[in-house]
Amino acid sequence: MTQLFHKSFNTLSKASIVLGGLVAGLTVTTVLFANRTPYISLVDVSREQPVPFSHKHHVGGLGIDCRYCHTSVETSAQASLPSTKTCMTCHSSIWTNAAMLEPVRQSYMNDRSLEWLKVHDLPDFAYFNHSIHIKKGVGCQTCHGQVDQMPLMMRKNTLNMEWCLSCHREPEKFLRPREEVFNMNWKPSHEKPQAQLGAELVESYQVQKLTNCATCHR
């Protein structure tokens, strides 16, 4: 009987062990890397909305507080998007002829909601709650970036589990006084750097380190 495998297969089989490992490693790395690119995480990507609403004009330029529009952010899980009536408190009197605002007027007259597309969207199996973060002194800006500089809304963080945990493991690095949560330009002062301030806030707000899976997967 002749041999089934030629002698050279010895080398080949050895090489395949190394190569196989390399290919597997490369695949895993590629997937992990891809997950962090804007293509998957949608960081810095804006979406086509029914009205090109500018936070830069309304927040940065006019100085309107987040809560004028995102009314429930202090009290519930959702920050909630404003109703058309909220836009109309101003736009019934100003910029009443702007073509850009036609969908807003139509929506108000016909009692149909404006269909905003979600920019931030966690998978449905993850639970998030705004009110607790606001109460414990996490600024909007820490998670959403310089909203007052955005002509169009976009993500500034991946919203990966890795990102949530990076803060839940050491919240003291990110906390600020409650009064400053809505301030887009807050920075820790020179007299009291973040390390010292964070430790004090963890103490006075009794901030826990919530890393139990059931905190977010319930």
Binding site: Q78, R112, E115, P123
Partner: peptide, 21 residues
């Protein structure tokens, strides 16, 4: 399936109700 579960979240759209909410 588990990312976009067939359930309503606050303020999501609906094809079931006539007003779309």
């Amino acid at each position: 399936d588990m990312h976009d579960q067939p359930k309503y979240k606050p303020q999501s759209g609906s094809s079931f109700f006539a007003d779309g909410r």
